[in-house]
């Protein structure tokens, strides 16, 4: 997993619920090509012409509230969204994103301070969010140690894989 990104900001509002990120009628499909065209379509029906690979989503508070479905952050990852930065995340979205190795970062003032199309730089390890366009840095919430460990191995799947491997070689 990469820790540094630079991308164009795509702005969304507060309380962007799972339904807006991936409408539930598309959540049963586990096929990337069927899911990707609908990513963020609940928030913006014209998202197809707006979203480009490598974009960074910038949102207000409680991003990802509602459903606990893991396909919600997974769909963002599949669509090529580089990262989401928000004032705050819903609990389960945050947990799922870390588990699948999808970069997210909580930043204070990002919603008001970053505009649509701004060039944004983030560094997950150092906890940096910077708008290059506005030449401004935003304070971020640090990740607890265990989550840093998960991020470094690339997510919970790889963490458990390594742990099971160690256990089987130990016995």
């Amino acid at each position: 997993m990469d820790f540094k990104f630079r991308g164009r900001a795509l702005k969304f509002g507060h309380n962007i619920d799972a339904e807006q990120i991936l409408p539930s009628r598309y959540t049963l499909s586990a096929r990337q090509e069927e899911v990707v065209p609908h990513v963020m379509s609940g928030a913006d029906p014209h998202i197809g012409i707006r979203l480009k690979k490598g974009d960074i989503i910038v949102a207000g508070t409680n991003f990802g509230c509602g459903s606990a479905l893991e396909i919600v952050p997974l769909a963002l990852k599949w669509a090529g969204v580089a990262a989401v930065i928000a004032e705050s995340f819903s609990r389960v979205f945050y947990r799922n994103a870390i588990n699948i190795g999808f970069p997210i970062l909580e930043g204070t003032g990002v919603y008001a301070g970053i505009g649509e199309g701004d060039m944004v730089e983030i560094d997950l390890e150092r906890g940096l969010i910077r708008s290059i366009t506005k030449m401004r840095n935003f304070p971020t919430a640090p990740f607890p140690d265990f989550m840093q460990t998960l991020m470094h191995v690339g997510g919970l799947e790889e963490y458990v894989r390594q742990r099971l491997k160690r256990a089987s070689t130990a016995t």
Partner: peptide, 8 residues
């Protein structure tokens, strides 16, 4: 939780 948490 999500599916990866459940698998773990």
């Amino acid at each position: 939780v999500g599916s990866t948490d459940m698998a773990a």
